[in-house]
């Protein structure tokens, strides 16, 4: 029974790469090798190998290959793979294939070219982000100024005063800060939490607990 399962596994890993245009080169020291314009190494473990210390050995072998710039996968049965932290493999550039009814590439491997490409992409994304954040900050600043103006206008209307011409934040300085502190604190997050969480709705404990420190303890 075990033999049948093994044959199926090898075949499915093979199919995975052959369907992607690779050819099977051979097996060296238990490592399957596939080749297209570059080579891919696959270390495949059976369930019993994995649980008897095989995972660590496979990871060490994979680290060694990956360190030499090769693209390496570890292939594990699904029951084993779910116990493996993919981040540990990702951090070391090792790929993970999960073997079940189909082969799933759970973690992509990274050879040297991919690392350089990722680094460059990271820099580009960072630059883009900084640019867009700069634009956003500018827009937020303008919006804040508009809100300040509207608040001042509203207050003047409430107090029955004639509407004053608006001033910019820089001109208004300290006086504007004082107006800001008059605004009642917003309770948006609170309201949202009460509305969404069932265990908070109509819970008599909210009133009981809010009196803590202000009443005498009866039974403890």
């Amino acid at each position: 029974m075990d033999e049948d399962r093994d044959i199926t596994m090898v075949r499915t890993v093979g199919e995975f790469f052959i369907n992607r245009g690779f050819r099977y080169v051979g097996d060296e020291d238990g490592i399957q090798i596939y080749e297209d314009s570059f080579r891919v190494f696959v270390i495949e473990l059976k369930v019993e190998e994995a649980w008897s210390g095989g995972i660590l050995k496979a990871v060490l072998k994979a680290i060694s290959l990956s360190g030499s710039g090769e693209i390496v996968y570890i292939a594990l049965p699904r029951s084993v793979a779910r116990h493996v932290d993919g981040k540990l493999l990702w951090d070391r550039g090792i790929g993970l294939l999960v073997l079940g009814e189909e082969v799933i590439e759970a973690v992509k491997p990274r050879g040297k070219i991919e690392e350089i490409r990722e680094e460059l992409m990271g820099t580009v994304i960072q630059l883009e982000r900084e640019r867009s954040e700069g634009r956003l900050l500018e827009a937020i600043k303008k919006l804040e100024e508009k809100i300040d103006t509207l608040e001042t206008t509203l207050r003047q209307i409430e107090r029955g005063r004639p509407i004053q011409p608006t001033r910019t934040r820089r001109e208004e300085g300290v006086e504007k800060e004082a107006v800001k502190h008059e605004v009642k604190p917003t309770i948006k997050p609170t309201t949202k939490i009460i509305e969404t969480a069932d265990f908070m709705k109509d819970n008599p404990w909210i009133e009981i607990l809010s009196k803590r420190g202000k009443e005498k303890v009866k039974y403890t």
Binding site: E207, L209, S210
Partner: peptide
């Protein structure tokens, strides 16, 4: 989840100025 929910509601409702008391083990 009920213990975690109770913790969250407790923190939400108990006033921030209610200081810890070793006598009643609260605050």
């Amino acid at each position: 989840f009920s213990v975690w929910r109770g913790c969250v509601l407790y923190g939400y409702a108990v006033p921030a100025d209610y200081e810890w008391s070793w006598e009643i083990m609260e605050g």
